[in-house]
């Protein structure tokens, strides 16, 4: 009833692209150009024209994706064709070059094309593998639910520490205030947690407060379990145990959240290469075509 874009219409575009690739390889092997194989032979021009048209058409995917009224196929069909025809371009474009590479605009165009295609392959791969990973990691939660539950835990924790007094209250409250997820691209992709907290330190018999990392709430858990191990009062111990349970739950949610951010980031990051490289490719391609005809 439904299926992935990779198997759209029984993999029609896969077979189409494969036929195109095989046909051009056969033609390349069969063709006997004057001199070395190059873009200037009739086959070179044919392959070049097909490849250039393909590049323009592949770029139009960005338009079709946003043309919500369009009845020209489905976006899924377009993506399927985009992936397989884009892949075939690797062969078509390379055969067009006749393997003549140098330090020039033509080879730059080829290189950009390869980079766009490789980033696209990565994209197809993450689109294939990551949705399941994200689903498994989320385990029925949404980001909104996770944030809400963390807020709920914080609220409960701050009520509990009112009965505990220093130093637990300062540590717990500061851990809540200095809690931080997200951040820049590296933080997101690395699943890093920059949360901090304050702990009391004795320095020359003077007590002062110091900021330390509280990544994954681990430091807070260490401090609280330390307090619990030294606690002699049953009531205080009960409150500490309750706090530890809450913070452990928060640590688990946090892990889930950081993982979600990381996976989602990895699933989207390639577009930040794919699109700018495509634009660069279009510009270089134009220069390549113009210069070829200019020097003709």
């Amino acid at each position: 009833m439904h299926g992935s874009f990779l198997s759209h219409r029984g993999g029609f575009w896969f077979w189409f692209a494969l036929t195109l690739v095989l046909a051009s390889v056969v033609a390349y092997v069969w063709h006997e150009p004057i001199g070395l194989p190059n873009g200037g032979s009739w086959l070179g021009y044919t392959l070049g024209t097909i490849a250039a048209l393909l590049i323009v058409w592949l770029t139009l995917f960005g338009v079709r994706k946003r043309a919500y009224y369009s009845r020209l196929g489905s976006v899924k069909g377009w993506l399927s064709a985009h992936v397989y025809l884009g892949g075939s371009l690797l062969v078509l474009g390379t055969l067009h070059s006749g393997f003549q590479f140098g330090m020039n605009i033509h080879t730059l165009a080829w290189l950009l094309m390869v980079l766009v295609i490789v980033s696209g392959f990565y994209g197809a791969w993450v689109y294939w593998r990551y949705p399941n990973r994200i689903t498994r990691n989320r385990d029925g939660m949404t980001r909104d639910l996770i944030f809400r539950e963390i807020a709920d835990i914080d609220r409960k924790a701050s009520l509990i520490v009112e009965g505990l007094g220093s130093p637990a209250d300062r540590m717990v409250i500061s851990a809540i205030q200095l809690f931080q997820v997200g951040g820049g691209a590296w933080q997101q992709l690395g699943g890093r947690d920059r949360s901090q907290m304050m702990i009391g330190v004795l320095k020359e018999k003077q007590k002062s407060w110091k900021r330390v990392s509280n990544s994954r709430q681990q430091r807070l858990l260490d401090e609280l379990t330390g307090l619990l191990s030294r606690s002699t009062e049953p009531k205080e111990a009960a409150l500490l145990q309750e706090l530890i349970d809450l913070v452990s739950r928060k640590a688990r949610l946090l892990k889930q959240l950081l993982n979600d951010i990381r996976l989602q980031g990895l699933m989207e990051i390639w577009l930040y290469c794919h699109i700018p490289l495509t634009l660069a490719l279009l510009a270089t391609l134009t220069a390549h075509i113009v210069s070829v005809f200019f020097y003709w």
Binding site: M1, H8, K65, S74
Partner: peptide, 20 residues
Amino acid sequence: NLKGGPACVRACPTGAAVRI
């Protein structure tokens, strides 16, 4: 009012959205 049918399903690039 759209001739091609539900926009959500038609705009899904990966085929995840289905109406049944």
